[in-house]
Design a protein around this nucleic acid. Structure first.
Lengths: 113, 113
DNA sequence: TCCAGTACTTGGCTATACATAGTACTTTTG
DNA sequence: CAAAAGTACTATGTATAGCCAAGTACTGGA
């Protein structure tokens, strides 16, 4: 058990949440998302992102259309389905609760310390 | 893929973080932690907590001593080791970064929406 | 002795993030 | 026009956390 591994575990699920958020605000393709996540300091590699997108699409949360590119192969532009929007709302609630709970534990710790 | 499962994934690593925090503020045994987590609205079951404590102990982050109880079997009272304290500091940093990153993605979303 | 309560343990299951390697298409370059 | 480089996407195998469910061990009371 090392710190790095726990950090990885901490990201689980949260990454999915962030990606749904990014897609929620407009049609994007994978490289757009990678740029966006990198700017937010959430480093992700291709091998993580692409399978995740496929999974979300197969679950009916996303849909995509092919768009020709002027430099390279065509791209998949993703957007949320209605199901995806509902799902994102549910996740947002969970995330907020989780942050609150964690904050509660930390705050109480400071009071007693 | 359902919401519940993603919620479970979101908890990964965070639970460990919370438990280390709880132990950091004083010696406690498992039921104390369960109560504390329940109050913070982070429901955990025994089958999750006990293996986690064993794992943290084997990793050298925790140590425990047996304490007799007046009602029932003796209890393991845990406390952090020095290694555990350092580990918790690292996790705290990671968690704060993660919250910031997530907030960054969400905030930007609202600006464009 | 039998029963209920408390504390802790164990085994099997599922799902995600990662590393790594590979495919397919397009544009550039000699 | 053929080879190389770049872009976008795919596939496979590994490790690990959290959950469920059942089980063990000890205590005290009827």
């Amino acid at each position: 058990m090392n710190l790095e591994n726990t950090q990885i575990q901490m990201r689980k699920g949260i990454l999915e949440f962030c990606i749904l958020h990014i897609i929620a605000r407009g049609e994007v393709y994978a490289s757009d998302m990678l740029d966006e996540l990198t700017r937010a300091k959430m480093i992700v590699v291709e091998g993580t992102l692409y399978p995740l997108l496929t999974r979300l699409k197969n679950a009916g949360l996303l849909e995509y259309k092919w768009v020709e590119s002027k430099s390279g192969p065509p791209r998949k532009y993703y957007k949320l389905t209605d199901t995806g929007s509902s799902f994102l709302n549910g996740l947002t609630e969970t995330w907020d609760d989780l942050v609150d709970s964690t904050e509660a534990v930390r705050t109480k710790s400071q009071v007693k310390a």
